[in-house]
Simulated assay, not measured.
Amino acid sequence: MNRDHVDAQQAAFDAHHDDPGDLPVMRARFEYNGSPRFLLYAIKRLDLDHRHGFHLDVQLVTDELESGMETIRHRLDEGDTDLVDTDYISVARERAAGANIVAFHPYGRTVGGLVAPEDTAIEGLADLSGHRLGVTRRLDKNWILTRAACRKFHDFDPAETATLVEADSRDDLTRLIRGGEVDAGFQFWPLVPELTETGRFVEVLPVSDLVQRLAGTDDKLPIATFVTGDSYLDAHPEAVRGFAAAAQDAVDHLLTRDDIWDDISRRLLPDATVASAVTTGWREMVVTEWGAETIAGMRRLFDHLHAVAGADALGVETIPDGTFWLDP
């Protein structure tokens, strides 16, 4: 982690942290190398939070500190944070364990890709056995989806036939991949270009393809969601609705305008040479809306993962009532 780069990104947000006045404040805590920061920056830069009746306060954190769902749960439950993002399976897992958190808006198909050296012998799912595979942590959604796909399409479980190496953070995973300490690694999608654009590495398996194959639908299903605490939702439902509206406006802008991506490249990306790949990837990843049918598809995907990977891999037996809030 380059601390100067993190501070520079935070300064870009702070330049738009004007006086909230009488508006309800929504405190957002997001990883400095996660892609939601692009959307949050667009909201702040375009003043969409104030236009929709709330004040968004964004603080960037390191994934080493924020990688555990326990930390997220405690921050939301105890009132230290009002907004985070995570995959909906993690929301279901933590809600089943008693966390008072709720997913209220889709973010996108935030899965990653399996990255390997350009001379790798790994070409797809069938080639994973016998290799050292890097992940951020064992419950990483990329790993769960890959296990499920291998079991369904190739009748083996890589948890039994490959060696899993947990890196604990995305930065450490990149280090393991670059250092050859793993044969391949499941890296988060915004960080894939930092490896593949050098020409030394290739993405051999986009996990988004597995999402669609397992879901059996052409609809783009969100994996990541924006999450708040039940207590914040009860106290400030209009702010939550305001964020959903602001996020939709920001997505519309980011899908159709290149000028804001030029600004994002200058202020939020450590390497401008990957800006084009990041822009394209973000536009393909983001999900613009959801409804009852989308939630039904997400539940079908969960049921399929549960059937082939089991509750031990998912960390939860079923999606509890109240996991999703579609009121906006």
Results as ranks from 00 to 15, higher is better:
36 P>M: 10
68 G>D: 13
62 T>Q: 09
215 A>S: 14
273 T>S: 15
314 L>C: 03
265 S>N: 00
216 G>M: 03
193 P>W: 02
113 G>W: 06
240 V>A: 08
140 D>Y: 02
125 L>Q: 00
24 P>Y: 10
46 L>K: 13
303 D>H: 10
16 H>R: 13
234 D>I: 06
167 A>C: 08
184 A>S: 03
262 D>V: 08
222 P>G: 12
12 A>S: 09
14 D>L: 08
175 R>G: 12
172 D>I: 06
3 R>G: 10
203 E>C: 09
198 T>Y: 07
17 H>P: 00
192 V>S: 11
275 A>I: 05
16 H>A: 07
274 V>Y: 02
107 Y>P: 00
206 P>Q: 11
318 T>F: 13
241 R>H: 13
323 T>H: 03
12 A>C: 09
129 S>Q: 12
110 T>H: 12
51 R>N: 10
274 V>F: 03
325 W>L: 10
141 K>C: 14
280 T>W: 02
224 A>S: 15
184 A>F: 09
110 T>A: 15
248 Q>G: 15
81 T>A: 06
240 V>M: 09
307 A>G: 07
128 L>H: 00
72 I>Q: 14
32 Y>C: 15
251 V>Q: 13
221 L>A: 10
312 D>M: 01
324 F>Y: 14
206 P>L: 04
56 L>I: 00
201 F>P: 01
271 D>A: 03
132 R>T: 04
184 A>Y: 06
166 E>Y: 07
231 S>A: 15
51 R>C: 04
